[in-house]
């Protein structure tokens, strides 16, 4: 088992390393502080959204609304948080609470998460359109500074990714609370037999997802300096792909925060790598799909090895 779990994290690490090596081979100038920053800049919001999706997959649900939610947060950040910080913070807190409430309702009424989140994606998207009918707004100055800070040794994006992975690893894998949360995905009945409220725990998992979704939206606006209602719609699919690339499973509470962050970095890098290849723009999206399939095929080999060991 220890062999297996060690293999699980190896796969995302190896795929990132291979892709990084290929990128450096194609474009040696990327091998610098500045180059790395450019390559991974947009990875920070994607990594945060992937962590949010992971929280939901951890309790055996799936979130089809995270992209719309991150877009909504981006719109709130670029308008309210910039103009009236206190009101903006209140709205963001309310959004996190709404996410937690969604988790509680899904569990209490035994609703299919895939449908409820699908419906909520309309709600978030509608609210975002309502707040910001046309692209615009401005990033709060402090957020802009935070996202463009240049720490020594490593670019901000790399430092932030390591920090996100470390914090979520401590929270989900190492802490007792995280173990219980993963238990909801692994065996909800055992958790409720142990005297814990599954509904409350699911609310926590969804609340955490909302929290990381809020962070993702804020990070995104800090990078792009403006927002629009459709800015992050593709995050829904990216985040699911990121979690799976990182060795997570759709069921059973088997997730890896470190893997999820690495998965998000791999997806971001795949896009940059393809533009270095000077591939015809027609084929860029398709090659991203091909890379995804390739990496997931590698996962199959690993899990077979894992079964043997």
């Amino acid at each position: 088992m220890s062999f297996f779990s060690r293999y699980r994290i190896l796969l995302p690490v190896i795929s990132l390393a291979v892709l990084l090596a290929a990128t450096f081979y194609m474009q040696p100038r990327a091998m610098s502080y500045f180059g790395l920053n450019l390559l991974f800049n947009l990875a920070v919001p994607i990594a945060l959204a992937t962590i949010a999706q992971m929280m939901i997959l951890m309790v055996n649900d799936i979130d089809l609304s995270i992209g719309a939610f991150v877009s909504l947060v981006a719109c709130v950040t670029a308008t309210f948080l910039n103009d009236a910080p206190l009101l903006g913070l209140l709205i963001l807190a309310a959004l996190i609470l709404a996410y937690a409430a969604m988790g509680a309702v899904i569990d209490a009424l035994e609703l299919p998460a895939i449908v409820v989140t699908l419906g909520m994606s309309f709600v978030w998207g509608g609210l975002a359109l309502f707040i910001l009918p046309s692209p615009g707004g401005a990033a709060p100055g402090w957020l802009r500074t935070l996202m463009t800070v240049k720490p020594p040794l490593m670019p901000m994006a790399v430092v932030a990714s390591i920090l996100i992975a470390f914090v979520t690893h401590m929270l989900i894998i190492r802490s007792g609370f995280g173990t219980v949360l993963r238990g909801v995905g692994g065996n909800a009945r055992a958790i409720s037999r142990a005297g814990l409220s599954v509904t409350r725990l699911k609310a926590w998992a969804y609340g955490l997802a909302g929290f990381f979704g809020v962070l993702a939206g804020m990070a995104l606006v800090g990078l792009t300096t403006a927002a629009d209602a459709n800015i992050a719609l593709r995050y829904t699919l990216l985040s699911i792909a990121g979690v799976i690339l990182g060795g997570g499973e759709f069921t059973g509470g088997k997730v890896s925060p470190t893997g999820a962050v690495i998965g998000a970095l791999t997806l971001t890098l795949a896009a940059s790598f393809l533009s270095f290849l000077r591939l015809s723009p027609d084929w860029q999206i398709g090659s991203q799909g091909a890379i995804l399939i390739l990496v997931l095929t590698a996962r199959l080999i690993f899990s077979r090895k894992g079964d043997a060991a």
Binding site: A241, Q284, I285, G286, Q288, G289, A290, L292, I293, L296
Partner: peptide
């Protein structure tokens, strides 16, 4: 993943 290829 496959739909990305079809799209291309």
């Amino acid at each position: 993943a496959a739909s990305l290829i079809y799209q291309s």
